[in-house]
Nucleic acid binder design. Structure first.
Lengths: 335, 335
DNA sequence: ATGAAAGCGCTAACAT
DNA sequence: ATGTTAGCGCTTTCAT
């Protein structure tokens, strides 16, 4: 039913080579031939079978994005950034949830060997450093957002330490002296870097760092985070500010604070991280560190495509600037 | 560098046919040959080049999911459901944002003709009925969640009318008599069906339907929805309950009500739709209609794979049950 | 149970 | 500028 390039060639009275040239916009085709071919394509309602092209060119025209879960507005926005660039450059994007499972991850990396994808963007705290380094050593791979500096693939992310400093200094400048942190899991590079930035900033500001005011909510799960936040706010003495490594945690802090009858920001100020939609929907809206999500994705994609096209080029890592969006969870009053 | 099936054949002293049989778990291979082949695969670190396989089998092993935007927890969860089934059945999933642009949509449908995808799941209010019907007439396509009954492709969704009835009856049973609706855009099938269900339920309950209390927020955008909700709550007389067709709208109503100093649910009760994460993070948490998002995706995927494998089979549409999750935005008190 | 060989649709090297 | 042809890696039919 579907026409092939051979039939187009026959129909136009030209060779398959010429048809192929027209399809690939190659030079060295006379205007007349070009038009003849285009007409035949039209009349036969021909569409090239890319499976043939792919085999011949030994490329899939696809890249794979690995995320712990697509169902997270941060990741999905980064993916959108990836897609924006990929589409322009004629690549399609596969998205795979790894559910942070290394077996899944290993399996997806196989798609590179099977030539089903030309490159890989990992939005994923890579814990099995060496593993991935070996499997993917000779393939185009870029780390995005959640990078591990020990892994040998280039990355694009934000400067967590200075972003954290900005957030913490904001709290300090609002006169807060009893500042807590709600972190995720120190196995993640960003968690380590943000905690480091947090502690350093407090020290520089002459504010004591209380170990019992640095809490961890291992899973990014709302109810779990509410429990941890409640704990943080339960003691005789409790913090007057909480820096959270995610907006979900910040929303959890708001709920916990409310349940204990604390006012925000009067009694406790709250800062989130990521600037996902939720941060503007809570009451009060959350002051948060805005990550340039779309740009993270698009830069990672550009980097990857460069790696695919010119594997010999040495790529340098990229840290994008983040900025603080001040809302009522720290500012108050103007609600 | 990468070994081919020919090299494996040579190395094992068998033919490519036999190697292929082993790879495809075909019968008629002696245990001895099988082991010889497997050993060679191991030793040569061989991985089949799927581009060759794809061309020969004339299939891509991929399906495409079209969504207005991936950056929406409802869609991304449905996609997760699709992926769960696809992975088990050996298919990969491409995701494309159409941004509700019909030109983009048309372009993506081309992937079917190019044989880059074997089938299509559309999570998308299809407005250009005929168009898609023509382009995709002879390809495996399934509508999911946002279906148009006039389009000739099978669909899986929820029964919007009865789901709406359930939500509205909940408000009625709580003694509400002045019930408003915050809808999206009547160009969407679900918007029409839900409004119909809403009006019918009120009529059956003997409650007058006030046209000026049915409002529309064309874009699902938080700030815009807050403005509409504020309008709804501004009059001399205002509703004592609002039924929203999305949780985002419900969150907007909460914000608008708060700003006007109204208590929820005492002064105004609020019901959302979808049961996305946001609905449990607001204050108060939102009573909402839970759509079986994962199941919507997985059933749509099953349906599509059936269509791919057995195009001759006539498929019937599927409506999954939704259920009401009652939280404090209508129940109150037990916060 | 195994092998030989054709061929999927396309591109690109080479020849003219 | 155009055509001829080999061949990308695999599956599958047909012999044996």
């Amino acid at each position: 039913m579907a026409a092939t390039i051979t039939e187009v060639a026959k129909h136009s009275g030209l060779s398959v080579a010429t048809v192929s040239r027209v399809l690939n916009h190659s030079a060295n085709v006379s205007e007349e031939s070009r038009l003849r071919v285009l007409r035949s394509i039209e009349e036969l309602d021909y569409s090239p079978n890319m499976l043939g092209s792919n085999l011949r060119k030994m490329r899939s025209g696809q890249i794979l994005v690995l995320v712990p879960t697509i169902n997270n507005p941060f990741y999905s926005t980064v993916i959108e950034g990836v897609q924006n660039v990929a589409q322009i450059r004629g690549y399609r994007v596969l998205v795979a949830n790894t559910y942070s499972d290394s077996e899944q991850l290993r399996q997806y990396v196989q798609l590179l060997r099977q030539r089903l994808v030309d490159g890989l963007i990992i939005l994923h705290p890579v814990m099995e450093t060496l593993e991935l380094g070996n499997i993917g050593r000779h393939y185009p791979i870029v780390q995005c957002s959640e990078f591990d500096t020990r892994v040998k693939h280039p990355y694009v992310g934000i400067d967590d330490r200075s972003a954290t400093k900005m957030a913490a200094m904001h709290l300090v400048s609002m006169g807060r002296k009893k500042i807590a942190m709600l972190n995720s899991d120190l196995r993640f590079g960003y968690a380590r870097r943000r905690q480091e930035g947090f502690e350093r900033t407090l020290e520089e500001a002459g504010i004591p760092v209380r170990r019992d005011w640095i809490k961890y909510a291992i899973e990014i799960h709302f109810d779990r985070a509410v429990a941890v936040a409640t704990e943080l706010l339960s003691g005789e003495e409790y913090p007057d500010a909480i820096f959270c490594v995610s907006d979900v945690y910040a929303a959890a802090c708001i709920k916990a604070a409310r349940q204990r009858g604390l006012r925000i920001p009067e009694d406790v100020a709250i800062v989130g991280f990521d600037n996902i939609d939720i941060s503007m929907m809570t009451d009060p809206p959350i002051t948060t560190v805005n990550q340039p999500m779309l740009q993270l994705g698009s830069e990672a994609c550009k980097m990857l495509l460069t790696r695919i096209d010119q594997p010999e080029i040495e790529l340098s890592n990229m840290l994008l600037p983040a900025d603080l969006i001040v809302r009522q969870s720290t500012l108050g009053h103007n609600y």
